[in-house]
Design a protein around this nucleic acid. Sequence first.
DNA 1: CTCGATCCCTGGACGC
DNA 2: TGCGTCCAGGGATCGA
Length: 302
Amino acid sequence: MPELPEVETVARGLQLTVAGRRIMSVTLGKTDFIDDPDALERHLPGTLIEKVERFGKFMLMRLSKHQNEQENRDASGGSLLVHLGMTGHLSAHAATEPFPKHTHVRFLLDDGRELRYTDARRFGRMAYLVADRLPDELGRFGADPLEITEHEFAALLKSRNSRIKALLLDQSALRGIGNIYADESLWGARIHPMRIAAKLSAKEARTLRAALQKVLREAIALRGSSISDFLDADGQPGEYQRRHRAYGREGKNCYRCKTPIRRTIVAGRSSYFCPKCQPGPRSVKRPGKRKKHVTPKGKRTS
DNA sequence: CTCGATCCCTGGACGC
DNA sequence: TGCGTCCAGGGATCGA
């Protein structure tokens, strides 16, 4: 499941292998995950791949058009956004090499290779954007978790009454975090996924930001996590899955306190946490009181 | 504002 | 071996 570290890994790989190449032609298979398939066929042929970078969980390919300016002039300065969804792969191969099943997009490059997008489940997304539309599109996303300042992070948490796990997964709040790195960073910061973001202490906010950045940086250094079938632009798996402390470890002992890791559903996602290291919101052990059955329904306005 | 439910999609795990 | 069933999950959408 490509999240920030995996997408960063792929983007760096593509920057090395396809930046500077020109797209000669476009061949499409199934297109239900592409915003406007015709736009790809119209605008991409002839464009130069200037740069490949990551934006949240998106791959951002910046394109330009040096020759053939007479046609497709609105393609200059355009960008191709690619989201890998759950099972997306983007990598270059010799055009003569047979392409695997579920290969839905092929860009023939000017050096005889083909940049291919393969995605069995088609949870990914692809969109060609003219320069004018890019700011609006990117503006819908929140801060990059590796760039956000301590102050901004604290303010963001204070502004949300949602569970911290839901906030971490909300791409309009922070861009690039998915289920794995949300759980890993919460484990690192010893914060229960159901805690309310606005109720975290200033210290907890600092700890969480630090844990998040540490986890993401280490994951990038290890080229991401390969859980099911993530492969980088060179077809190589990542190594960070070996460092997981919470994600996917239900029933296994916590690395800190040996308590079995538990799994619950938060924000509609499996959430793994240590019930001892990451105490729940209102389960703060009170020796005297037994089940008080308090159901804080919150004030009903209107 | 925040939540859960539902849908999209396919492959892999599991039970019989 | 081969079914059927369930599940995974990012994101959009809708109703509560």
